[in-house]
Write a protein that binds this DNA or RNA. Sequence first.
DNA 1: TCGATGGGGAGAGCGGTGCTCTCGCTTTGA
DNA 2: TCAAAGCGAGAGCACCGCTCTCCCCATCGA
Lengths: 232, 232
Amino acid sequence: MTGTPRQRAREQTLADITRIGRDHLARDGAAALSLRAVARDLGVVSSAVYRYVASRDELLTLLVVTCYTELGDAVDAALADTDPDDPVARLRALGHAVRDWALAEPASYALLFGSPVPGYRAPAERTTGPGTRVVTALVRIIDEAHRSGKIVAPQQVPISDAVRADARRIREELDLTLPDGVLARGVLVWSALFGAVGFEVFGQYGVDTFADPRALFDHHLTVLAQTVGLVG
Amino acid sequence: MTGTPRQRAREQTLADITRIGRDHLARDGAAALSLRAVARDLGVVSSAVYRYVASRDELLTLLVVTCYTELGDAVDAALADTDPDDPVARLRALGHAVRDWALAEPASYALLFGSPVPGYRAPAERTTGPGTRVVTALVRIIDEAHRSGKIVAPQQVPISDAVRADARRIREELDLTLPDGVLARGVLVWSALFGAVGFEVFGQYGVDTFADPRALFDHHLTVLAQTVGLVG
DNA sequence: TCGATGGGGAGAGCGGTGCTCTCGCTTTGA
DNA sequence: TCAAAGCGAGAGCACCGCTCTCCCCATCGA
C-alpha cells in the first residue's frame, strides 16, 4: 500500500497485463502473443495497453523475466528439500525441477530456451540476471562437491587453450575451485540437461518412442552425474 | 523434361516458392514466414500462391522436409569422408556436421529443433522419414562399433523396466545389437549433442562466454564418445 | 478553492498478415 | 472445335502492431 492511488492502480494494471500475457503465452505460444488480444481480455482498447507497455517486445521481455524467475524459484525450492551433502541428489533434484517446470509450462520453456522470437532480442541487462540462476545453481552444486572431495577426477581428455582460458575466467568470476576438465564437463552437463528436456518438450522423441520419459531422464541424470565425476 | 508444359511450369513455380520461402526463413525465421511476402518476391499476387500451396502451414511443411533432407545430406557427406572403422572419428564428424549446418542455417535449425511454430504441427507422415536420418546415422555408428568390439561396457547404472522395454523395441525395429545400457546412453548422447548445438545457435551461452565454441563442442564430443563407451 | 497539468482510455487510421471468393483469360485434351 | 480445367488478379474479411488525436478527470500547486 505505497504510493499514490494512481501509482497503485498503475502497478495493478501492469500486473494484470503480465498475468494475461502469461495465460496467452501458455495457450498460443510466444510468437503468437498479441497485444490486442491482451487488451481484449483486460477489457480495454488496444491503444490503452501502450500506456503501460511500450511495445509487444517489451511485454515479451516482462514475460521472459517472469519465466526465468519462476524457473529459478522452482529449482531453488527443489534444492532446499535435498541433503546439502549429497551432490548427486542435488543434481537430480535440479534436473527434475527443470524438467517438471518445462513440462508444466512448455510455451514458457520455449520462450526461454527455444527458437528466438522473430524480430525480438531479449535485452541482456534485464534478462541475464534471472537467466543465469539455474546454471549458477548447477555449477555451485558441482563446486561444493569438489570442495568436499566428492568428485573423482574424470578421465582426461584434451582441452584446448581457448577453453582453458575461458574456464579460468569463469572460475574467477564465480569464485570456483573446479579444475578445467570438471568445469568443461559441467558445461556439457548443463547443455545436455537442457537438450534432454528440450527434446521431450518439443516432441523430438516422437509420440510413442518412450513409455516412461521420466525414467529415461532419470537415467540420463545418473549418467551425467558420473560424467562430471560426482560420487554419492 | 517430362510432362506437359503446364505440369513443368507448375513444378518450377513450386520450386521457386520453396526457394523463396527458404530465403525468407533464413532472413526472418519460421514464425515470421509470410505467404504474401513470398508472393511479392515471386512477382505474383498473394492469392495466386494458394494455387500451389494450400496454406502457410503446408509451405512450412515443405520447408521442414527440405531442411531435414539438407541436414541429413550434410551428415551423410561428412560420414562418407571418414574411416568406417573409426567410430570415434565418425561420431565427431556427425557432431560437427550437425553443428556446422546449424550455425550456417540457424533459422532452419530453429524450425526443426526449436520451439514449435504456434498453431503449426508438422505432419508425421511427411517429416518422420527425413527427420530420423541423423539419429539413425548416430545409432548405426554406435551399433557398428559394438559389433566390431569397439565399445567397452560403461559403468552400470540402474535402468528401469520401462526404459528396458523401449530399448528392446528400438533394438528390434532398427536391427541393433546394443545392450540396454549402451542404447540408453546413445539416446543421451543424441539429446546432449543437440542440446550443445542448440545452446550455441540460440545464444544461451551468452555473447562472450566462450572464445572458441568449436573447441568447446569438440571437447564435448570427446566426452560423449566416452559416455557411450566408444574407444578409438 | 480554483485552475493548470498530465495520466489514461477511446477511436480512427496505416500498413501488414492469412485466407476466401469471384472473375476472367489461357492452356489442355477429348 | 469446344468444354473443362488451370491459373492470375483483385476485392474483401478479420486479425495484427503501432501511432495519433481527442477528451475525461484525478492530481497537485498557487
